[in-house]
Simulated scan of single mutants.
Amino acid sequence: MRPWRLALLFFFLTATAWASDQAAEDRMLHIASDLRCLVCQNESIAASQAGLAADLRQQIREQIHAGKSDDDIRAYMVDRYGDFVLYRPPLKPTTMLLWFGPFLLLALGFLVFAVSLRNRNRKSKDVALSEAERRKADALLAPANNVQDES
């Protein structure tokens, strides 16, 4: 075989392998972007630099090379780590707190705010001063009144 044909065959095989590896890598990133990093919890497995995230990305790659579908890979991760690993966990009784917890906390915050405002308004009602309290207040305010009168 001539050298240029051998080089062309090598280039074609290398380009084909690189393209299939790139497709597998893109698929891994797509799957990993839907999964939460269990260490960081606010990043996807695709974006996380944690060691566990790197291990999980490698597991996804291995399952892709084994011919598993995206749904099979996600199901494997959920079986192993629970629904928390999903950024969009399914709505079921065990995940109700994940779905509605933030709204419950927000409602509780509004309730505490409303009760504290109501209690503050009750305490700040005008209360009539006794005669002794009025004289004491006038005595305390008298120097301030004199300064204002002079200017």
Rank of each mutant, 00 (worst) to 15 (best):
T14P: 00
A66N: 04
T94P: 04
N121T: 09
I45Y: 08
R118D: 11
L129K: 02
G82H: 07
W99S: 03
Y76H: 11
D83N: 09
W4D: 15
E131W: 06
L111H: 11
F11I: 11
A24W: 09
T16C: 13
G67A: 03
L141N: 10
I60L: 02
Q22S: 15
F100D: 06
V147C: 08
L140P: 00
L29Y: 12
V85A: 00
L8K: 08
A32P: 00
A53S: 08
V112E: 08
W4M: 15
W4N: 15
D138A: 03
A54P: 01
Q59R: 12
L140H: 09
Y81N: 03
L111S: 13
V127D: 02
E133G: 00
P143M: 00
E133S: 00
E25W: 11
D26E: 12
D71H: 09
V112F: 15
L52K: 03
D55Y: 06
H30G: 12
V39K: 15
L104N: 08
E25Q: 14
E25H: 10
Q22A: 15
R122Q: 04
A7L: 12
P89G: 02
G109I: 01
R134W: 07
S69D: 01
M28L: 09
C37M: 04
R61Q: 12
V39Y: 15
D72F: 08
L141P: 01
G51K: 14
R120T: 04
R118K: 11
A75G: 04
D70V: 01
F10P: 07
T16A: 15
D149A: 07
K92L: 06
L8S: 12
A50E: 14
Q148T: 07
R88P: 12
R36S: 04
K125N: 03
N42C: 13
R88F: 14
F12C: 13
P102W: 03
L117V: 08
P102M: 01
K125D: 03
W99I: 05
D21Q: 10
L97A: 15
D72W: 03
A50N: 07
A47N: 12
